[in-house]
């Protein structure tokens, strides 16, 4: 689509929003179809591919060995990296990660870290000397909007299906596993777009072009919120924020079921 068609579509979306409708006739608080497949990459210790209404993200989890950070000698390290591949849309140029990709990596990192989903103290081999480094790498293949929720689902599914490799003589033995990686929580983002006065969940790419502001809220099962990121240059009222938090907690519960099912299926197949 060229600039003119984007503008034209955005205009239509804004006009529809004034009447309370979305361009794809979706209810305001309904996600597009989600499919998740886990265990798809032979060399990864955990992996998943997510398709959220045409937005496709691959996540891979890998363990390496290394030294702990000096201030946390009794903890393994968690490192999250994301790349929005030039595959994903004509607007992405090949090259080092831009601000969008870095924001994506950082907010996914925060949701996992702050929810204490992974107990890093269990990833220590010798305190102060040798620990597991847990890498979560995300690759956005196709961007049809809402890459934050798709990446969050992919990261969660990859982690939930991950196994910790065996270590012998301070070396990782590839393809031999010690135990499954235990997750205390499955943190998941729910992203809202605000167009005019209307708030909608899981915006598609055309809606992202039309939106004034974006709000991504990560939640865990007991109803706690573990990370928030506001995006776009528009604003939200306090009432709107409270509404979104309540909805995010509900949506998070539904999404976690989808992740758990995918992980179960991955074990069987």
């Amino acid at each position: 689509m060229n600039e003119f068609i984007w503008e034209f579509t955005a205009d239509r979306i804004r006009k529809l929003a004034m009447k309370g409708f979305r361009i794809d006739r979706r209810p305001l608080l309904k996600y597009r179809p989600i499919s998740i497949e886990t265990g798809i990459i032979y060399n990864a210790d955990g992996s998943a591919i997510v398709n959220l209404g045409g937005t496709k993200v691959v996540a891979g989890v890998k363990f390496e060995l290394g030294q702990p950070y000096p201030d946390t000698p009794d903890k393994g390290a968690l490192l999250v990296d994301a790349e929005i591949l030039p595959h994903s849309s004509p607007a992405v140029e090949p090259g080092p990660p831009d601000e969008d990709a870095i924001e994506l990596a950082r907010i996914i990192d925060r949701s996992i870290r702050e929810s204490k989903a992974v107990d890093l103290t269990k990833l220590v081999i010798r305190e102060g000397e040798l620990v597991y480094l847990l890498f979560v790498d995300l690759r956005v293949l196709d961007n049809n909007g809402n890459i934050i929720d798709a990446s969050s689902l992919a990261a969660a599914a990859a982690l939930a299906s991950a196994q910790i490799p065996k270590v012998e003589d301070d070396q990782i033995v590839r393809h031999e596993y010690e135990r499954a990686l235990e997750l205390n929580e499955i943190p998941l983002y729910t992203t809202f777009a605000k167009i005019g006065k209307l708030i909608m969940v899981d915006p598609r790419i055309e809606e992202e072009h039309a939106m004034d502001a974006r709000m991504s809220i990560a939640t865990v099962d007991d109803g706690h919120v573990t990370a928030i990121q506001k995006g776009g240059n528009g604003s939200f009222t306090k009432g709107e924020i409270e509404f979104m938090i309540e909805e995010a907690i509900k949506k998070g519960r539904d999404l976690r079921k989808v992740v758990k099912e995918a992980v179960e299926d991955g074990r069987k197949n």
Binding site: A44, V58, K62, D81, D137, R174
Partner: peptide, 14 residues
């Protein structure tokens, strides 16, 4: 233009 890249998790060592 042709760009060949490998994902960090595609190979045994990241």
């Amino acid at each position: 233009r042709y760009r060949y890249t490998m994902s960090p998790f595609s190979v045994p060592e990241r």
